[in-house]
């Protein structure tokens, strides 16, 4: 990681927490659908960055959201989980090119990008909602929340990626 990368990631961390708690948590589309854009930080963390550092930072990121939301540790658990599982998902969605560290997430093939984002977002939402709901009685609600919030998050993540990609060119 270069010093430029470090700065970008610090700014991204703080900006995403604020956007999430002040703006996105109040959308409540259809009563309960909110996007969780803050995992954009985990998705775009440099591929050659330290993996332990990513797990720790993701935990902190989730915990910050939890403190604002009064939700215990559900976001922290889900974020640490996808940070840990990220190398496996990377290998599975980008294939061999990931092994040679030649991939750049922003410039990758669209299909591969969608696979990568979709898998991580759905895993994150599933872990988060199961911990939040925490009861077998509400499994339909769990699946419904995961699906709809997941779609919302994926669309928003793609839009953010396109938006910031164009700027940097």
């Amino acid at each position: 990681m270069q010093s430029n990368d470090i700065l970008i990631n610090i700014v991204r961390f703080i900006a995403l927490v604020f956007i999430q708690v002040l703006l996105l948590n109040n959308i409540n589309l259809g009563g309960y659908i909110n996007p969780f854009l803050y995992i954009y930080f985990i998705l775009l963390f440099p591929l050659d960055g330290n993996k332990s550092l990513l797990i720790f930072l993701s935990f902190l990121l989730g915990l910050s959201i939890d403190i604002f939301e009064d939700s215990g540790g559900v976001h922290a658990a889900a974020s640490a989980f996808i940070a840990y599982i990220r190398p496996i998902v990377l290998k599975y969605s980008f294939g061999v090119s990931y092994e040679y560290k030649s991939v750049k997430i922003k410039k990758a093939d669209t299909t591969e990008k969608i696979t990568y984002i979709t898998s991580l977002v759905l895993m994150h939402h599933f872990v988060m909602f199961s911990l939040e709901i925490f009861s077998f009685k509400h499994i339909p609600l769990l699946l419904k929340s995961t699906l709809f919030s997941g779609i919302f998050t994926i669309v928003l993540t793609m839009c953010t990626m396109i938006l910031f990609n164009r700027k940097s060119k």
Binding site: G73, A80, L131
Partner: peptide
């Protein structure tokens, strides 16, 4: 590291 952090998060959730 992941296991420790995950357990802390679960503990916080259950406590909440």
């Amino acid at each position: 590291l992941f296991a420790v952090l995950f357990i802390i998060a679960i503990a916080l959730t259950i406590q909440s």
